[in-house]
Protein backbone atom coordinates (compact mmCIF):
# COMPACT_ATOMS: atom_id res chain seq x y z
CA UNK A 1 0.00 0.00 0.00
CA UNK A 2 1.23 3.53 -0.76
CA UNK A 3 2.62 5.57 2.12
CA UNK A 4 0.30 8.01 3.86
CA UNK A 5 2.95 10.72 4.15
CA UNK A 6 6.17 11.11 2.21
CA UNK A 7 8.26 14.07 3.33
CA UNK A 8 11.52 14.97 1.65
CA UNK A 9 13.94 17.59 2.79
CA UNK A 10 11.39 19.84 4.44
CA UNK A 11 12.43 23.34 5.45
CA UNK A 12 10.28 25.78 7.32
CA UNK A 13 11.24 29.29 8.27
CA UNK A 14 8.40 31.27 9.83
CA UNK A 15 8.01 34.64 8.11
CA UNK A 16 9.31 37.43 10.29
CA UNK A 17 11.01 34.96 12.59
CA UNK A 18 14.26 36.26 14.04
CA UNK A 19 15.58 32.84 14.92
CA UNK A 20 18.52 31.78 12.77
CA UNK A 21 17.66 28.10 12.91
CA UNK A 22 14.71 27.01 10.78
CA UNK A 23 11.75 25.33 12.53
CA UNK A 24 12.22 22.40 10.12
CA UNK A 25 15.72 21.85 8.88
CA UNK A 26 15.81 19.23 6.12
CA UNK A 27 13.32 16.82 7.69
CA UNK A 28 12.56 13.64 5.72
CA UNK A 29 10.29 10.84 6.80
CA UNK A 30 7.76 8.32 5.52
CA UNK A 31 4.55 7.43 7.33
CA UNK A 32 3.05 4.09 6.27
CA UNK A 33 -0.68 3.86 5.60
CA UNK A 34 -2.71 2.51 8.53
CA UNK A 35 -1.56 2.54 12.14
CA UNK A 36 -0.10 5.09 14.50
CA UNK A 37 3.04 7.06 13.70
CA UNK A 38 4.51 8.84 16.71
CA UNK A 39 6.39 12.14 16.68
CA UNK A 40 8.47 12.85 19.75
CA UNK A 41 11.00 15.51 20.62
CA UNK A 42 11.68 18.35 23.00
CA UNK A 43 9.69 21.58 23.23
CA UNK A 44 10.30 23.61 20.11
CA UNK A 45 11.74 20.64 18.19
CA UNK A 46 9.35 21.18 15.27
CA UNK A 47 6.62 18.59 15.85
CA UNK A 48 3.68 20.98 15.62
CA UNK A 49 5.26 22.72 12.67
CA UNK A 50 5.43 19.41 10.81
CA UNK A 51 1.90 18.39 11.79
CA UNK A 52 0.47 21.74 10.70
CA UNK A 53 2.24 21.59 7.36
CA UNK A 54 1.06 18.03 6.71
CA UNK A 55 -2.49 18.94 7.77
CA UNK A 56 -2.40 21.76 5.14
CA UNK A 57 -2.73 24.49 7.79
CA UNK A 58 0.72 25.96 7.31
CA UNK A 59 2.76 26.58 4.17
CA UNK A 60 6.06 24.87 3.57
CA UNK A 61 9.17 26.95 2.83
CA UNK A 62 10.84 24.29 0.68
CA UNK A 63 10.96 20.54 0.19
CA UNK A 64 8.36 18.13 -1.06
CA UNK A 65 5.52 16.65 0.95
CA UNK A 66 2.72 14.39 -0.15
CA UNK A 67 -0.16 13.36 2.09
CA UNK A 68 -2.46 10.49 1.06
CA UNK A 69 -0.87 10.60 -2.36
CA UNK A 70 -1.44 14.33 -2.95
CA UNK A 71 1.00 17.20 -2.94
CA UNK A 72 0.37 19.59 -0.01
CA UNK A 73 1.05 22.67 -2.08
CA UNK A 74 -1.01 21.88 -5.18
CA UNK A 75 -3.73 19.44 -4.14
CA UNK A 76 -4.66 20.50 -0.65
CA UNK A 77 -8.38 20.19 -1.35
CA UNK A 78 -8.06 16.49 -2.07
CA UNK A 79 -6.14 16.02 1.16
CA UNK A 80 -8.63 18.01 3.22
CA UNK A 81 -11.51 15.79 2.08
CA UNK A 82 -9.89 12.90 3.94
CA UNK A 83 -8.27 14.29 7.11
CA UNK A 84 -9.19 15.55 10.57
CA UNK A 85 -7.09 17.32 13.19
CA UNK A 86 -6.93 18.10 16.90
CA UNK A 87 -4.48 21.02 17.00
CA UNK A 88 -2.25 21.53 20.03
CA UNK A 89 -4.03 23.86 22.47
CA UNK A 90 -7.33 23.72 20.61
CA UNK A 91 -10.47 24.05 22.70
CA UNK A 92 -14.13 23.41 21.96
CA UNK A 93 -16.55 26.36 21.66
CA UNK A 94 -17.52 27.10 25.26
CA UNK A 95 -21.25 27.58 24.73
CA UNK A 96 -21.84 24.14 23.20
CA UNK A 97 -22.69 20.96 25.06
CA UNK A 98 -20.29 18.04 24.73
CA UNK A 99 -22.75 16.31 22.42
CA UNK A 100 -23.05 19.40 20.21
CA UNK A 101 -19.28 19.70 19.90
CA UNK A 102 -19.12 16.31 18.23
CA UNK A 103 -22.42 16.42 16.38
CA UNK A 104 -21.96 19.81 14.70
CA UNK A 105 -18.40 18.99 13.75
CA UNK A 106 -19.67 15.91 11.95
CA UNK A 107 -22.51 17.89 10.33
CA UNK A 108 -20.00 20.49 9.24
CA UNK A 109 -17.99 17.75 7.55
CA UNK A 110 -21.15 16.98 5.57
CA UNK A 111 -22.47 13.86 7.31
CA UNK A 112 -26.24 13.34 7.25
CA UNK A 113 -28.05 13.87 10.59
CA UNK A 114 -28.82 10.22 11.29
CA UNK A 115 -25.24 9.12 10.80
CA UNK A 116 -23.87 12.13 12.67
CA UNK A 117 -26.13 11.31 15.61
CA UNK A 118 -25.09 7.66 15.66
CA UNK A 119 -21.39 8.47 15.43
CA UNK A 120 -21.75 11.11 18.16
CA UNK A 121 -23.39 8.63 20.53
CA UNK A 122 -20.77 5.96 19.89
CA UNK A 123 -17.86 8.37 20.03
CA UNK A 124 -18.94 9.81 23.38
CA UNK A 125 -19.49 6.36 24.86
CA UNK A 126 -16.07 5.21 23.70
CA UNK A 127 -14.38 7.98 25.68
CA UNK A 128 -16.77 7.68 28.65
CA UNK A 129 -18.26 11.08 27.95
CA UNK A 130 -21.85 9.77 27.91
CA UNK A 131 -22.64 11.18 31.34
CA UNK A 132 -21.39 14.64 30.28
CA UNK A 133 -23.38 14.61 27.04
CA UNK A 134 -25.61 17.53 28.00
CA UNK A 135 -23.00 19.44 29.99
CA UNK A 136 -21.85 22.82 28.66
CA UNK A 137 -18.20 22.96 27.68
CA UNK A 138 -17.81 26.05 29.89
CA UNK A 139 -18.62 23.83 32.88
CA UNK A 140 -16.13 21.08 32.05
CA UNK A 141 -12.68 20.49 33.48
CA UNK A 142 -9.66 20.93 31.21
CA UNK A 143 -9.17 17.22 30.68
CA UNK A 144 -12.82 16.66 29.80
CA UNK A 145 -12.61 19.43 27.20
CA UNK A 146 -9.59 17.76 25.67
CA UNK A 147 -11.45 14.44 25.61
CA UNK A 148 -14.36 16.08 23.81
CA UNK A 149 -11.91 17.27 21.14
CA UNK A 150 -10.55 13.73 20.76
CA UNK A 151 -14.06 12.26 20.55
CA UNK A 152 -14.88 14.81 17.86
CA UNK A 153 -12.22 13.75 15.37
CA UNK A 154 -12.23 10.07 16.28
CA UNK A 155 -15.97 9.99 15.51
CA UNK A 156 -15.36 11.45 12.06
CA UNK A 157 -15.00 9.48 8.85
CA UNK A 158 -11.52 10.89 8.12
CA UNK A 159 -8.93 8.42 6.84
CA UNK A 160 -6.06 10.26 8.42
CA UNK A 161 -6.04 11.90 11.86
CA UNK A 162 -3.54 14.47 13.09
CA UNK A 163 -3.45 14.44 16.88
CA UNK A 164 -1.11 17.06 18.36
CA UNK A 165 -0.70 16.20 22.04
CA UNK A 166 -4.28 14.90 22.30
CA UNK A 167 -3.88 13.48 25.81
CA UNK A 168 -2.18 16.39 27.56
CA UNK A 169 -3.94 16.91 30.88
CA UNK A 170 -5.83 13.61 30.86
CA UNK A 171 -5.89 11.33 33.89
CA UNK A 172 -4.31 7.87 33.47
CA UNK A 173 -7.65 6.13 32.99
CA UNK A 174 -8.95 8.65 30.47
CA UNK A 175 -5.63 8.46 28.68
CA UNK A 176 -6.03 4.71 28.22
CA UNK A 177 -9.55 5.20 26.91
CA UNK A 178 -8.19 7.55 24.28
CA UNK A 179 -5.49 4.96 23.51
CA UNK A 180 -8.17 2.32 23.01
CA UNK A 181 -10.06 4.62 20.64
CA UNK A 182 -6.85 5.40 18.74
CA UNK A 183 -6.09 1.68 18.48
CA UNK A 184 -9.58 1.05 17.20
CA UNK A 185 -9.12 3.74 14.56
CA UNK A 186 -5.79 2.22 13.61
CA UNK A 187 -7.37 -1.25 13.24
CA UNK A 188 -9.80 0.34 10.80
CA UNK A 189 -6.77 1.07 8.61
CA UNK A 190 -6.86 4.76 9.40
CA UNK A 191 -3.52 6.53 9.73
CA UNK A 192 -2.87 8.48 12.90
CA UNK A 193 -0.06 10.99 13.22
CA UNK A 194 0.42 11.46 16.95
CA UNK A 195 2.63 13.84 18.87
CA UNK A 196 3.06 13.37 22.58
CA UNK A 197 5.43 14.08 25.45
CA UNK A 198 4.29 10.92 27.23
CA UNK A 199 6.86 8.47 25.97
CA UNK A 200 5.02 5.47 27.43
CA UNK A 201 2.10 6.54 25.28
CA UNK A 202 4.26 6.91 22.18
CA UNK A 203 5.66 3.45 22.80
CA UNK A 204 2.32 1.83 23.61
CA UNK A 205 0.58 3.17 20.53
CA UNK A 206 3.05 3.75 17.72
CA UNK A 207 4.04 1.18 15.17
CA UNK A 208 6.78 3.58 14.11
CA UNK A 209 8.29 6.63 15.75
CA UNK A 210 10.44 9.55 14.81
CA UNK A 211 12.50 11.57 17.24
CA UNK A 212 12.90 15.15 16.07
CA UNK A 213 15.42 17.63 17.42
CA UNK A 214 15.88 21.17 16.09
CA UNK A 215 13.80 20.42 13.01
CA UNK A 216 15.83 17.35 12.08
CA UNK A 217 15.16 13.66 12.37
CA UNK A 218 17.59 12.03 14.73
CA UNK A 219 16.06 8.56 15.08
CA UNK A 220 13.33 6.75 13.20
CA UNK A 221 11.91 3.24 13.28
CA UNK A 222 9.75 0.80 15.24
CA UNK A 223 10.18 0.98 19.02
CA UNK A 224 12.24 -2.22 18.77
CA UNK A 225 14.45 -0.77 16.06
CA UNK A 226 15.07 2.34 18.12
CA UNK A 227 16.33 0.13 20.93
CA UNK A 228 18.60 -1.67 18.51
CA UNK A 229 20.06 1.62 17.40
CA UNK A 230 21.28 2.85 20.75
CA UNK A 231 24.68 1.99 22.14
CA UNK A 232 23.28 0.48 25.33
CA UNK A 233 19.94 -1.30 24.83
CA UNK A 234 19.63 -2.54 28.45
CA UNK A 235 19.16 -0.77 31.74
CA UNK A 236 20.12 -2.22 35.10
CA UNK A 237 18.80 -0.50 38.22
CA UNK A 238 20.54 -1.02 41.56
CA UNK A 239 18.70 0.04 44.70
CA UNK A 240 21.55 0.29 47.20
CA UNK A 241 24.35 2.73 46.81
CA UNK A 242 27.28 1.18 44.96
CA UNK A 243 30.35 3.20 44.15
CA UNK A 244 30.00 4.35 40.52
CA UNK A 245 33.64 3.44 39.83
CA UNK A 246 32.76 -0.21 40.45
CA UNK A 247 30.02 -0.03 37.82
CA UNK A 248 31.78 1.91 35.12
CA UNK A 249 33.32 -1.12 33.40
CA UNK A 250 29.79 -2.40 32.61
CA UNK A 251 28.45 0.59 30.73
CA UNK A 252 27.25 4.17 31.22
CA UNK A 253 26.43 5.00 34.82
CA UNK A 254 23.68 7.47 35.72
CA UNK A 255 22.67 8.24 39.26
CA UNK A 256 19.02 9.06 39.64
CA UNK A 257 17.11 10.50 42.57
CA UNK A 258 16.38 8.42 45.63
CA UNK A 259 19.77 6.74 45.82
CA UNK A 260 19.04 4.58 42.81
CA UNK A 261 21.83 3.95 40.33
CA UNK A 262 21.11 3.18 36.70
CA UNK A 263 23.58 1.49 34.40
CA UNK A 264 23.00 1.44 30.65
CA UNK A 265 24.77 -1.53 29.13
CA UNK A 266 25.02 -4.01 26.27
CA UNK A 267 23.25 -7.31 26.82
CA UNK A 268 26.29 -9.33 27.96
CA UNK A 269 27.52 -6.68 30.39
CA UNK A 270 24.00 -6.17 31.70
CA UNK A 271 23.68 -9.87 32.53
CA UNK A 272 27.10 -9.92 34.15
CA UNK A 273 26.28 -6.88 36.24
CA UNK A 274 22.95 -8.37 37.35
CA UNK A 275 24.69 -11.61 38.36
CA UNK A 276 27.38 -9.64 40.19
CA UNK A 277 24.73 -7.70 42.11
CA UNK A 278 22.72 -10.80 42.99
CA UNK A 279 25.83 -12.54 44.32
CA UNK A 280 26.29 -9.60 46.69
CA UNK A 281 22.63 -9.68 47.74
CA UNK A 282 21.95 -6.26 46.24
CA UNK A 283 18.47 -5.44 45.04
CA UNK A 284 18.63 -5.25 41.26
CA UNK A 285 16.31 -5.13 38.26
CA UNK A 286 17.17 -5.42 34.60
CA UNK A 287 15.24 -4.79 31.38
CA UNK A 288 15.36 -3.19 27.95
CA UNK A 289 15.77 0.58 27.93
CA UNK A 290 12.56 2.59 27.84
CA UNK A 291 11.80 5.09 25.14
CA UNK A 292 12.47 7.74 27.76
CA UNK A 293 16.00 6.38 28.31
CA UNK A 294 16.61 6.49 24.57
CA UNK A 295 15.25 9.99 24.40
CA UNK A 296 17.45 11.22 27.26
CA UNK A 297 20.49 9.48 25.87
CA UNK A 298 20.15 10.46 22.23
CA UNK A 299 18.80 13.98 22.70
CA UNK A 300 21.25 14.58 25.54
CA UNK A 301 24.17 13.59 23.34
CA UNK A 302 22.83 15.61 20.45
CA UNK A 303 22.66 18.71 22.64
CA UNK A 304 26.18 18.08 23.94
CA UNK A 305 27.67 17.51 20.56
CA UNK A 306 25.50 20.05 18.76
CA UNK A 307 25.14 17.57 15.92
CA UNK A 308 22.34 15.12 15.26
CA UNK A 309 23.11 11.66 16.63
CA UNK A 310 22.38 10.03 13.27
CA UNK A 311 25.22 11.89 11.61
CA UNK A 312 27.48 11.32 14.60
CA UNK A 313 27.08 7.56 14.53
CA UNK A 314 27.84 6.35 11.02
CA UNK A 315 27.86 2.72 12.19
CA UNK A 316 24.08 2.69 12.56
CA UNK A 317 22.08 2.32 9.39
CA UNK A 318 18.75 4.04 9.06
CA UNK A 319 15.94 1.59 9.66
CA UNK A 320 14.06 1.11 6.41
CA UNK A 321 10.36 1.87 6.21
Amino acid sequence: MASAVVAQDLFKVYPGSHSRTPALDGLSLTVPTGGVYGLIGRNGAGKTTFVRIAATQLALTSGSLSVLGHDVAREERKIRERIACVPQESRPLYFLTVEEVVYYYLKMRGLPSVEARRRTREGLEELSLGEYRRRLVSQLSGGLRRRAMCAMVLASDAEMLFLDEPTTGLDPIARREVWAAIRRASREQRTILLTTHYLDEAEALSQRLVLIERGRRILEGTPGELRGRVRYPYRVALQEGVAPEELEPYGRVATVEGGQTLVFAREREARELARWALERNLRVSMGPVSLEDIFLDVVGRSIDEDTPAEDAEPGHDEAKA
Binding site: R52, I83, C85
Partner: peptide
Protein backbone atom coordinates in the same frame (compact mmCIF):
# COMPACT_ATOMS: atom_id res chain seq x y z
CA UNK B 1 -9.65 28.02 20.06
CA UNK B 2 -7.69 26.95 16.93
CA UNK B 3 -11.09 26.42 15.35
CA UNK B 4 -9.92 27.69 11.97
CA UNK B 5 -7.15 25.05 11.97
CA UNK B 6 -9.76 22.39 12.70
CA UNK B 7 -11.90 23.61 9.81
CA UNK B 8 -8.95 23.97 7.42
CA UNK B 9 -8.00 20.33 8.05
CA UNK B 10 -11.48 19.17 7.07
CA UNK B 11 -13.52 19.04 3.86
Amino acid sequence: LKFQDIVVASP
